[in-house]
Design a protein around this nucleic acid. Structure first.
Length: 578
DNA sequence: CTAGGGTTAG
């Protein structure tokens, strides 16, 4: 992160002459419409500003009609500050007020750095700053994660005697915490003479961002008053920290207290439902959202799509998607990924074409969905061509997850050498997921040599994960290499990994079937049965489910770690490729 | 009403 000294930022203002010369011929360029109107809106240099100013004076237009932020932004970057000051002093508003509005615009713009520049100019030319001035420039510091400037402004706040202003202190707490200085934030929090619900909410959110959900919850319990935002922040916090069950439990408590969820709460709760597969609650929230008109909110529809997908209701997610009047890349990517994990590769690819046709630009996540689709259905050539196209046609640099998908795609298809080559030549250091994908392929295609290569890396990258040892041991066992299998088990024991290799699989297999029987007894005939598990479905269960689905004439949807299996009339949506 | 806190796809 660039964090120039304040004096350095002032030095940057010396580009005045270059800018003036570069832009002086803009006005002589042929412009459609009225060139003067164009100039009035878009002037970019002090030179053009003077032209506009002249225009204002000539036409007798009130000076307050000038786009003041434009004036300020031109002058923030050049030594023409006094010129803008002159103009502002003729406007029928306090000068500080106008500079503050400009600061606010800059702080919220795409280049918040302008606010920092302008702030130092304001200081230099002795405009009297107030608490609003500080709050806007602090906001820019937060957005830019400029701790250095933030500390300067903090000191400045004290110098101005504003150290008791609660709003400012809240922003400063936010600044320190969001810049990773949680201890500074806590220090300030502890010595604040008073705190309000915003102070507490800020701490909770930032603690969650640091991954410290326990401290966040302690504060949530400890705080004197909680508003809807406090509850929402805490629910979202649980979801973000991978504790969706706790999130749902807290939501239930919130309802008991009598608070009604708003749009943001709904997004967080739906995300929790998606993670644990709480379809009933998800449907209830969907109803509620419809009643309150929340479904027009794109965030909510996007999250609904995701929730239905992860709960195994592809149809319901399609309905939400179709009913959306506007869609973002998140909507499309979620839907493509949804089709992919439900084994509808063809539909996923078609949806992608449709998306491109509407002019929506894909991003990295979109391609993850596409590669997933290809991977689950063994579409090797399509996968290769998407992987090439993402960079070539859309300028998206593949990240580790994309490589993981490609390795998965090639390995599943038995192209273990090609997968290994891809890993060897990828520009990022491969992680455990990448080598794990290769190992998975080695199991399916019974390649012991390659499995050993993958294992050497996994051993190093993720030594405490017993799952890989289990896979390797199984590969040896299947090849009847009992001694090697025993060696792996010994290795696990030496590392203190105690999982019972054979017992685990049997137990899980039993559980899946038990879940199915339970579902058959407890649901009306004909209704879809949904089973969730946190590992991969084993081959034995997969075969049984196909059979049972045709006998009882019911759909059985199983969510495993990676995807969905929809069993119907003796067939599975994965077409046995998984 | 010139300022501060909570949200989605992998």
């Amino acid at each position: 992160m660039v964090c120039p000294l304040p004096c350095a930022s002032l030095c940057m203002l010396s580009s005045f002459n270059i800018e003036q010369r570069r832009s002086s011929h803009i006005s002589s360029k042929p412009i459609s419409e009225s060139p003067k109107t164009e100039l009035f809106r878009k002037f970019n240099s002090p030179f053009e500003l003077k032209q506009v100013h002249t225009l204002v004076i000539k036409t007798g237009m009130p000076i307050s009609d000038l786009p003041l932020s434009r004036v300020a932004s031109v002058c923030a970057r050049t030594p023409s500050f006094p010129y803008a000051q002159q103009i502002f002093q003729q406007v029928d508003q306090p000068e500080t007020f106008i500079w503050n509005s400009c600061l606010r615009d800059f702080a919220e713009s795409d280049s918040p750095f302008d606010a920092i520049l302008l702030f130092y100019q304001i200081r230099r030319y002795n405009v009297l700053p107030d608490s609003f001035t500080c709050s806007f420039v602090l906001k820019a510091c937060v957005r830019l994660q400029y701790l250095f400037h933030g500390r300067i402004i903090h000191a400045f706040v004290e110098k101005l005697g504003l150290q008791l202003n609660l709003v400012l202190l809240n922003v400063i707490v936010h600044l320190y915490a969001s810049c990773g200085r949680i201890n500074d934030a806590i220090l300030l929090f502890d010595k604040m003479p008073q705190r309000d619900v915003v102070t507490w909410n800020t701490m909770i959110t930032q603690l969650v961002k640091m991954g410290d959900i326990d401290s966040a919850y302690k504060m949530f319990v400890q705080m004197p008053d909680r508003n809807l935002r406090s509850w929402t922040a805490m629910i979202a916090g649980f979801v973000q920290c991978g504790k969706p069950k706790e999130g749902i439990a807290l939501f239930t408590k919130m309802e008991e207290v009598g608070l009604k969820p708003n749009e943001v709460t709904v997004v967080a709760v739906l995300a929790a439902c998606a993670d644990v597969g709480a379809l009933d609650l998800g449907r209830r929230i969907h109803d509620y959202s419809d009643k309150r008109g929340f479904t027009r909110n794109i965030h909510i529809s996007n999250t609904l799509i995701d929730m239905y997908i992860k709960c195994g209701c592809l149809k319901a997610s399609c309905d939400v998607f179709k009913n959306m009047k506007e869609r973002t890349i998140v909507s499309w990517s979620a839907m493509i990924q949804g089709l992919a994990i439900h084994g509808k590769a063809k539909e996923a690819l078609e949806l992608f074409s449709e998306m491109i046709y509407t002019g929506m630009k894909p991003n990295g996540v979109t391609f993850l969905g596409l590669l997933n689709a290809c991977s689950h259905m063994g579409l090797i050539n399509e996968g290769r061509s998407f992987f090439a196209s993402m960079t070539k046609d859309y300028g998206i640099i593949p990240c580790i997850e994309h490589y993981g998908c490609m390795v998965d795609l090639l390995s599943r298809a038995g192209l273990l050498e090609e997968a290994h080559e891809l890993i060897e030549q990828m520009p990022i250091k491969p992680n455990a997921a990448v080598w794990g994908a290769l190992l998975g392929g080695c199991k399916v295609h019974k390649n012991i040599e390659m499995a050993e290569i993958a294992m050497r890396h996994l051993h190093e990258l993720d030594p405490l994960n017993d799952g890989y040892y289990v896979v390797l041991s199984n590969i040896y066992s299947e090849a009847k290499k009992w001694e090697d299998a025993a060696k792996v088990r010994k290795m696990m024991r030496n590392r203190g990994l105690k999982r019972q290799l054979v017992g685990v699989q049997l137990l899980l297999a039993g559980r899946e079937k038990l879940a199915l029987v339970f579902g058959l007894i407890n649901t009306p005939p004909g209704e879809t049965i949904r089973i969730f598990k946190n590992l991969r479905v084993c081959e034995d269960c997969h075969a049984s489910f196909k059979l049972i689905s045709s006998i009882v004439k019911r759909e059985i949807v199983v969510r495993d770690r990676n995807r969905f299996h929809c069993f119907k009339d003796g067939y599975c949506s994965c077409k046995d490729y998984w």
